[in-house]
Design a protein around this nucleic acid. Structure first.
Length: 153
DNA sequence: GCCAACGTTGGC
DNA sequence: GCCAACGTTGGC
């Protein structure tokens, strides 16, 4: 049994929140339309652990913990014309977007705000989580992941 | 391939 | 609402 990798995935709570995931139990992390974020999902392994981050809300921060339970799933929303994630450049023969399935593990006992994350994160992680690009999935170093886990348990 | 214009993310 | 930091698009 190899040690899992750790990731952080952002979602706006209005779109999909930790409480919705808790209710659903599992969910497909679809709708990712950024190549770098998609490529991070392709690097995931079964059993990898993921911090659930609420973005674009007050205050932003880590609200829960999940596990990757399925890999390389074609994102169905790219073919759905009525979906806001519809991609006309994608086809059934050559789909562009895929995703992973995640399972709810637990809701953070203590909310970990972005303000607090700034103390833990290195500059690269901070840049990725904080600002300016469409990157909603980032890798988290093991040592830092363990510190975060201690704080949200 | 360059780059200006435009769109999006997301903290503040 | 503002705006920095990206990513994407399209003319050339």
């Amino acid at each position: 049994m190899t040690e899992p990798n750790y990731w952080l995935m952002k979602s706006e709570p209005d779109a999909y929140s930790i409480d919705t995931l808790k209710k659903d139990g599992v969910t497909l992390w679809d709708g990712i339309r950024n190549y770098q974020a998609r490529n991070f999902m392709r690097r995931m392994s079964l059993g990898d652990k993921v911090f659930f981050y609420h973005s674009n809300c007050k205050p932003p921060g880590i609200v829960g913990f999940m596990e990757v339970i399925d890999l390389n799933i074609i994102d169905p929303t790219q073919f759905q014309k009525e979906s806001k994630y519809y991609d006309p450049k994608s086809s059934q023969e050559e789909p562009r977007w895929d995703c992973v399935k995640v399972k709810y593990l637990f809701k953070a006992n203590k909310f970990l705000s972005l303000t607090e994350l700034k103390i833990l994160f290195n500059e690269e992680e901070l840049l990725l989580v904080k600002k300016g690009n469409r990157l909603s999935i980032i890798p988290i170093k093991k040592e830092i992941a363990k510190l975060i886990l201690e704080k949200i348990k």
